[in-house]
């Protein structure tokens, strides 16, 4: 009962944040709404007992990604008097299609718990065991690392304009 209540309140914050991202008139407000949304999702993780995931969510998304977004907005000063442009003709269609798709999958789940959790959540040691053991996710983890490295090299290549450095 209390768990459902807490979940509902947090969900309201998640939805309010998400709506703010879409409907905010100014880019800066949209990014701040995104921060609210991401932090509320972290709160959802805590209610599910996944403390480690929640902390990582705050560290990476709220502390890293949002700060980078705000930084970019400030650097470009792109939204001082930004007004929302009239909707493109395809935008409502794709929004409705996506909404139907999401509702379809939500209706299919029927809000039944999906069985026992695979690993003890919130436990850093067991998360580490799963990620780094060769039988589980070691290979995908390393591949993601290489992918990120490639992206980083690409970004640096694009950012440098001349050959001097």
């Amino acid at each position: 009962m209390i768990q459902e209540l807490v979940f509902l309140v947090i969900s309201l914050f998640v939805i309010a944040g998400a709506a703010g991202v879409v409907f905010a008139q100014r880019l800066f407000h949209a990014v701040l709404s995104l921060a609210l949304c991401l932090l509320s999702v972290a709160a959802v993780y805590i209610t599910l007992g996944a403390e480690f995931l929640a902390v990582i969510q705050v560290l990476v998304y709220a502390g890293g990604v949002v700060v980078l977004f705000l930084f970019a907005v400030m650097l470009t000063r792109s939204d001082l008097q930004l007004r929302r442009e009239p909707l493109e003709s395809f935008a409502p269609v794709s929004a409705v299609l996506f909404g139907v798709l999401v509702l379809f999958y939500i209706a299919r789940t029927g809000f039944v718990p999906q069985g026992e959790r695979a690993l003890a959540p919130g436990d850093v040691a067991s998360v580490g065991q799963v990620i780094f053991s060769p039988k589980a996710y070691a290979l995908p983890f390393e591949l993601v690392g290489i992918l990120l490295l490639a992206a980083m090299v690409g970004a640096i290549y694009l950012a440098r304009r001349d050959e001097r450095w």
């Binding site: 701040l32 921060a35 902390v55 990582i56 705050v58 560290l59 709220a62 700060v67 850093v124």
Partner: peptide, 12 residues
């Protein structure tokens, strides 16, 4: 880890 995470929020 929690301390590192929430400390990074003050930048916002």
């Amino acid at each position: 880890l929690y301390i590192a995470a929430v400390a990074s929020l003050s930048t916002i």
